[in-house]
């Protein structure tokens, strides 16, 4: 028993020496971690500051009147956001209607059908990734030239705004859906095909149901981005000061970011409080929409597991 013990204790001592930290590595590690934490703090503090500021400025103005009253430049006390809220909801509803089928369809094509050996498929792929980085105002000009005027000539109506924003956020939906489809293991496709299911049956009944959570996340991100956009909409008609409810095919509409901008640029400080209240409303609308999407996602998740 003696010699093995000796050997063992020698080995243990060597191990212990090896395990002891050398001070330098530890310092560098701590430094790096604090740097990362600093980055996180800046992001979180900036967001927190914005939220707190908006709530404090808006405090005196938060009431149901904001949701039911039209804007006014004369009667600051009763001015609200009703047309802008309805405009945003209407524009977003049609953004949703456009991006879901188009985005999912494009992603299915690229992931399941496109032959990567063909140059045009690679060309499309590359361009979708590039489109995701194009500034929003460029899409505004596109909407102005081709949708409001030009070949489509729809005029400056909420539908034009929807189509313009849909083009803007479509790459987000396509990329997220592609990721979700790619994450579905091939063994599921093979299992389905080996049962004599067609390619479309395999995609629609096996691949897509599994991808729904990922697709929903992409749509949430896309709509969240679209809801805050003001720049492209300024070019396609959302500039007017509107006191009546918007209609899908009639010109004269506005959306929340544009309305906030209008209030914020006025001289009287009361309007700045109103702009802050608009930020709060926009957050409420956004969180409600996201909450619904998350509920939808969880609902499908549960159904999938059975």
């Amino acid at each position: 028993m003696k010699s093995p013990n000796l050997a063992a204790s020698g080995a243990a001592a060597a191990t212990e020496r090896g395990l002891l930290s050398n001070g330098r590595g530890k310092t560098v590690g701590t430094l790096f971690a604090s740097l990362l934490f600093f980055g996180l703090s800046v992001a979180m503090l900036g967001l927190a500051w914005l939220l707190v500021w908006s709530f404090l400025r808006a405090q005196g103005r938060l009431s149901w009147d904001l949701f039911t009253n039209p804007p006014s430049t004369l009667d600051i006390e009763s001015a609200g956001f009703r047309p802008a809220i309805l405009g945003t909801l209407m524009v977003m509803a049609f953004v949703f209607v456009v991006i879901v089928p188009l985005g999912v369809g494009a992603a299915i094509y690229l992931e399941e059908y496109a032959d990567r050996n063909r140059w045009y498929n690679r060309f499309i792929e590359l361009n979708i990734q590039n489109l995701a980085g194009v500034p929003a105002v460029v899409f505004g000009i596109l909407g102005l030239a081709f949708i409001a005027r030009g070949p489509f000539g729809l005029g400056f109506i909420p539908l034009t705004a929807s189509l313009t924003l849909a083009l803007l956020v479509l790459p987000t939906v396509i990329l997220a859906t592609r990721e979700a489809i790619r994450a579905v293991p091939d063994s599921i496709r093979q299992g389905s095909l080996a049962l004599g299911a067609t390619k479309w049956q395999t995609i629609s009944r096996q691949v897509l149901p599994v991808s729904i959570p990922g697709i929903t996340t992409g749509v949430i991100l896309a709509v969240s981005r679209a809801i805050g956009e003001a720049a492209p909409l300024l070019l396609v008609g959302a500039t007017t000061f509107v006191v009546f409810d918007p209609e899908l095919f009639n010109s004269g509409y506005t959306v929340l970011p544009v309305q906030i901008y209008q209030y914020a640029t006025r001289a009287q400080p009361e309007f700045h409080d109103l702009a802050a209240a608009g930020v709060v409303i926009m957050l409420i609308v956004l969180l409600t929409m996201n909450g619904f999407a998350i509920w939808l996602r969880n609902h499908f998740d549960k159904k999938r597991v059975g």
């Binding site: 293991p185 063994s187 599921i188 093979q190 299992g191 080996a194 049962l195 004599g196 599994v210 597991v305």
Partner: peptide, 15 residues
């Protein structure tokens, strides 16, 4: 494939 079924190496039940 409808007539000639296949069982794979790794069990691959659908989710």
């Amino acid at each position: 494939r409808r007539r000639i079924g296949m069982v794979f190496q790794k069990p691959n039940p659908f989710p």
